[in-house]
Simulated scan of single mutants.
Amino acid sequence: MKRHLPAALLATTVLLVGCAVSEDTEVSDVADVEIVDTVEGTADADAESAPSALPTEVTAMLATYGLEEVSDVRDAVDALDQLDETRPLSVHASVRTDEVIFIDGEDEYAVPVPGDEVYVSIAPYEQHTHECHYHALGGCQGELVDEEMHVTITTNDGDVLVDEEATTWTNGFIGFWLPQDTQGVVSVTRGELSGETEFDTGEGGATCITTLQLS
């Protein structure tokens, strides 16, 4: 059984399917990691001392992109998603609602996300999109790159979490840390085009939103 330990080295065989935009269809591959087998590692004492620290193997992976100073899992998520590099990257990382799974060859490193927020990355589109549930920081590529738009994120209770101008990154996404166990609507306006879709940061919820079409 998989344990949610910080900086845990989980030797595993994994199936990694990357995210990419298809020019021929609106649905492409699913960004996901299927865990076939795991081996537990590290001590519980580490969980209390550094709940979001990255294992040295992961920091070495990040260093290949000039991110050697990144040592916290939240900072790693932000840095990788905003990295100005063409996808796919050699760094494979799958964002879940409670942890980020980094994959290096046949080794997997599951790092819990501390606090009470979930990272949700959004790729608004006009013509082409891809199917996705868990955001692949090194693989997902959206259609609209370096495009300015207005983003509003509102809960079902009417609370406005985000109301700001944003510019999509090189991977075509924009990401936000949202409260756990929250449901609502993401609305995006770009010029005369607009669209909206639902979000859910409950357990197992989607961290990759690719269903927001601007029309």
Rank of each mutant, 00 (worst) to 15 (best):
D24F: 11
L62W: 06
G175P: 01
E164R: 12
V162R: 03
E192V: 10
T189V: 15
S215I: 10
E68I: 07
H150S: 14
H133E: 08
V14A: 13
V17E: 08
H133R: 10
E108P: 01
H150A: 10
A166Q: 09
Y134D: 08
E196A: 07
L161M: 09
Q127A: 12
H135K: 12
R3F: 10
D78I: 04
E117Y: 13
M149S: 05
E34V: 13
V14M: 12
A47N: 10
L89I: 06
Y109T: 00
G41Q: 05
V162Y: 11
V111M: 11
T167H: 06
I103E: 06
Q82C: 02
V113E: 05
G138E: 04
G142R: 04
G142E: 09
C132Y: 02
G18Y: 01
P112Q: 12
T201K: 04
A136K: 04
V162T: 03
T129H: 11
I101H: 03
L83T: 00
E117Q: 15
T97L: 07
H135G: 01
L9G: 10
T155Q: 07
N171T: 03
I209Y: 03
T170N: 06
L137G: 02
P51Q: 09
H135S: 06
G202S: 10
E198F: 02
G175W: 02
L67F: 12
G172E: 02
V160G: 08
G195S: 07
P179N: 13
R96Y: 15
L67Q: 06
D44Y: 14
I101K: 03
E147Y: 02
V36P: 00
F199D: 00
Q141R: 14
D159P: 00
E40T: 12
